[in-house]
């Protein structure tokens, strides 16, 4: 069985905590991280969120680093480009390439570091939310924010049927593989086409069946949401406030500090 983000969220101990608290923590991290001029604050945020996710949410560290590696890879590439091609100031180091001077300026290096830090902190904030709050819980948050009902309902059904179709797709892919459907590039292309076709038809049929089964239960345009009252505990408020104060202090004291 493939384990995806949502599966970790469903089993996370933080699932039982107040959804709004988690959203506020996430939003705070993103806003402060992005508005910081120095790379220090975002790094602190990323560190805190990482610890929270691994320690409180019980996500295996290996898995966490693996999913963080994907955006980190993209960022590192862009960071190198930003460092070389932007910013002003004294040259930190440089070399000649076929008569062109390529160099990294202090401004460029600072900019690159800030971009790196902001991205990592933003991602770790989002991972904190998505690894502790399954979609099921987010639907009731959407409802509370006055999202249109039909939008939420469609989203809920989409969520549910993603898994149904994923299972079908894995089944078909397996059936194709055992009959050598992916032995070379050409056949892979054909197989993936057939997979998409049959998945499309399945989705269509599923829609019809869904309509019949919903009607059989007197569907009249209302789905209930799983809402639970989860008061925020004092210890949670204390920890969150401590985190907020720490980040704000770091934010204030490092506002003009650049690494170089």
């Amino acid at each position: 069985m493939t384990y995806i983000l949502d599966d970790y969220a469903l089993n996370s101990p933080l699932r039982e905590k107040n959804n709004w608290l988690k959203i506020v923590i996430t939003a705070f991290g993103i806003v402060v991280g992005v508005s910081s001029n120095s790379p220090v604050t975002p790094f602190v945020i990323a560190l805190c969120m990482g610890i929270a996710t691994i320690h409180f949410s019980k996500v295996p560290a290996r898995f966490y680093l693996k999913i963080l590696a994907a955006p980190a890879g993209f960022v590192l590439v862009s960071v190198v480009i930003i460092a070389f091609f932007s910013g002003t100031g004294g040259e930190v180091f440089g070399f000649d390439l076929w008569g062109h001077r390529l160099g990294v300026s202090t401004g460029g290096l600072n900019m690159a570091l800030v971009v790196l830090a902001r991205t990592i902190s933003g991602m770790s904030c989002l991972f904190f939310l998505s690894l502790s709050t399954p979609m099921i819980e987010l639907f009731s948050v959407l409802k509370a924010t006055r999202f249109p009902d039909s939008f939420i309902e469609i989203a809920m059904m989409m969520y549910r049927y993603i898994f149904v179709f994923m299972e079908v797709a894995i089944g078909i892919k397996y059936a194709q593989t055992v009959r050598l459907g992916y032995k070379d590039f050409r056949t892979s292309f054909r197989s993936i086409g057939m997979l998409a076709t049959s998945l499309f038809i399945r989705a269509w049929e599923q829609g019809e069946k869904l309509y019949v089964s919903m009607n059989s239960r007197c569907y009249d345009g209302r789905l209930i949401l799983l809402e639970e009252n989860r008061p925020v505990k004092r210890s949670e408020v204390a920890l969150t406030s401590a985190y907020f104060i720490l980040v704000l202090v770091v934010f204030y004291s490092t506002r003009n500090i650049l690494l170089i």
Binding site: I136, M156, M157, R160, Y161, K209, V212, S213, M214, L226
Partner: peptide, 9 residues
Amino acid sequence: SDDQLFAPS
């Protein structure tokens, strides 16, 4: 059963 169970929980 998958035709019938469409809600997320």
